[in-house]
Amino acid sequence: MTSAGNPAVNTAARPDGGGRRPPLPWLGVVPFLVYVGVFLLLPTVIIAFGSFTTKQGDPTLNNITGINQDFLIKAFVTSTTISVASALLGAIFGAMLAYAVATGNPRGVFRRIVTSMSGVLAQFGGVTLAFAFIATIGNVGFVTLFLQSHGIDIYANGAPLYQVSGLIVVYTYFQIPLMLLVFLPAVDGIRPQWREATESLGGSTWHYWRYVAGPLLAPAFLGCTLLLFANAFSAYATAAALITQGGIIVPLQISNLFTSETGRSQPGLAKALALSMILIVTIVVVLYTLLQRRTSRWLR
């Protein structure tokens, strides 16, 4: 088998002399590459191409410059605000939860429950999540009614759930579990011996966090926060289920411009927005990957 494998590798490594028959082992990955090519790469190319062409296919920059309109700039600002706020809230509470879990019994049932639940809740989103919050702080929600019967009306200043602040709270619901999942390995990597070493050198709790644990965890924390940002930035279904009118965030604007229900569909502009989202998310995820790599250097 080993000797049978070698010529194949050699064939593949040899510079191809032009249109001769392809080396056999490559045929094994063709179905996968074709499928991904058609359903993932081709759509991406369509987005990129469509961002720079008119409906008729002529080259144009109007789609890109079209992003520079008040309502779209506002959508980008709101999207960023919601993503940053929910990422920070998710990161802070998620990190505290991770610390609380990591300081417990590593084989305990409790830890398993928290990590398993987080696995489920980090995936929880869309219509179902929207309904969960409508049932909780919607205008006849459980908490709304409970507070009303105690003289507190959270609807006194309009419906909080359907505004930016509401979306931040709803997004935090899937951000905290995600933070726990991605940040826990870093917290687990902190050794108790480091604390003991700090103490034997006369350091206080503050010194330990400021000079030992803090700097070690900072890249991981920053990286995970970036991931949470990307996660919130690309979220569409939850917002679509909560906010049916208008497009306060970029994904909703894409949906508005893309569907022709309003009779004003602008596919070129929708593609330009989609392209800008892909670029932003890609940059953020690449930064996350770099920071994770830095963390994994001392983690294992």
């Binding site: 991904v36 058609v38 569409y236 994904p251 989609a274 892909i278 998310v281």
Partner: peptide
């Protein structure tokens, strides 16, 4: 390459991919 292609959908938000895949 295979790993990269498999993880690529994570950097393309669903709302963006749907715009590109609609013609298909």
């Amino acid at each position: 390459i295979v790993e990269f292609l498999c993880l690529l959908p994570l950097t393309i938000p669903a709302i963006a991919l749907v715009v590109g895949i609609a013609p298909l």
